[in-house]
Amino acid sequence: MSETLSIDVVSDVVCPWCFLGQKRLQHAIESLKDVSVEVRWRPFQLDPTIPAEGKDRKAYMQAKFGDGDRLKQIHANLVSLGAVEGISFDFDAIKVAPNTLDAHRVIRWAGTAGIAVQNNLVARLFSAYFEHGENTGDPHVLIEAAREAGMDVSIVETLLPTDADAEAVRAEIATASRMGITGVPCFLIEGRYAVMGAQDTDTLADAIRQVAEAKARGELEKAV
């Protein structure tokens, strides 16, 4: 199967299930030695109403889940699932619930620098937030992540203080909503086959292989 398969991942960088999904997709692709895959990242905001400066995460999460054991159970489950994928979730280290619009703008710009750069940036932003408690709404954090991902930092430093591409990102999110995407992660294979949620590695690998084999046979449905 020599043709390259495209996968667009609709996600938010403050979604722990999206971090799990990123790792599982990576592992699925690594297991498919004969399938070439290009992964691109598309924006989604779990809560676009968070102000630009962010909110206190503890208070924010308590308002959503209450003061009981529910949030502790969710975190414990994610820590356990993350360990399997090589993720060291540290929820106690996270102090700020950020607005993710700026992060998605930088991810968009990373895409123009190449697929590998964009994937590298997304992985770094997930790790910065969930494993190190960094505020991914902070311009300094975003610029440093861009630098580590191999981007031209001068471009990010110039564009980030402006509104460049803010409306383009919002428009992409609106498009995802019109497509019926209400939760993330969502994996769009070849732009038309959707796999919803942080499915396990084997499920993702099986879906990718099925679409790749259908594409090799010329049997993919025409895009609507």
Rank of each mutant, 00 (worst) to 15 (best):
V39C: 00
E134F: 07
V106W: 00
Q199Y: 03
A63P: 08
G197F: 04
I143T: 10
E167C: 04
G82A: 07
L160K: 10
C15Y: 02
G66Y: 11
P48D: 13
R178V: 09
M179Y: 09
A116N: 06
A194L: 13
A145P: 11
T182R: 13
C18E: 01
G86Y: 02
T49K: 09
P51Q: 12
Y129C: 02
D165K: 07
V224K: 12
A28Y: 00
M1A: 14
A164S: 13
V195W: 01
I173W: 02
H75I: 15
L220Y: 09
G183S: 15
G218N: 04
G180Q: 06
D8L: 03
E219Y: 06
T175S: 12
D92N: 09
A116F: 00
R209T: 08
L20D: 02
A52K: 15
A145V: 06
I173G: 00
L188V: 15
F89S: 00
G150P: 05
V10P: 06
S2I: 12
F89L: 00
G133M: 09
E134M: 12
V13M: 08
P51T: 07
I181R: 03
R42E: 07
I107G: 08
T201Y: 11
R192L: 08
C15W: 03
V9P: 08
A113L: 09
H132N: 09
A212C: 10
I208H: 01
G54N: 10
E85K: 07
W17D: 01
K72E: 12
D69M: 14
S31M: 02
S154L: 12
P43H: 06
D165E: 12
I74V: 14
L20C: 05
A164H: 14
A146S: 14
A176I: 04
V195Q: 02
A83M: 06
G133R: 07
R105F: 00
A83I: 01
I143R: 05
R105S: 04
L160E: 09
E172K: 12
A93E: 04
N135C: 06
K95H: 11
I50E: 00
H140P: 05
A103E: 01
Q45M: 11
A93N: 02
N120F: 02
A116H: 03
G82V: 10
D12Y: 08
M61R: 09
R24Y: 02
E144W: 00
S177I: 09
A110D: 12
S154F: 08
V169F: 05
A214F: 04
C186H: 13
G86T: 04
V117A: 04
L125D: 03
R192D: 12
I155P: 05
D206E: 15
A76M: 11
Y129N: 03
M196S: 13
A63S: 13
A164I: 06
I143Y: 07
I107A: 10
G197W: 03
E219H: 14
V39P: 05
T201M: 09
E219V: 08
L78C: 07
F65H: 12
F65D: 11
I87M: 01
M1E: 11
A171S: 14
H27P: 00
S6R: 15
D206W: 05
P51G: 10
I74Q: 10
I74S: 10
I107F: 03
A194Q: 11
V13K: 00
K72D: 15
P48K: 11
H75M: 14
A123M: 07
I155V: 15
A103N: 01
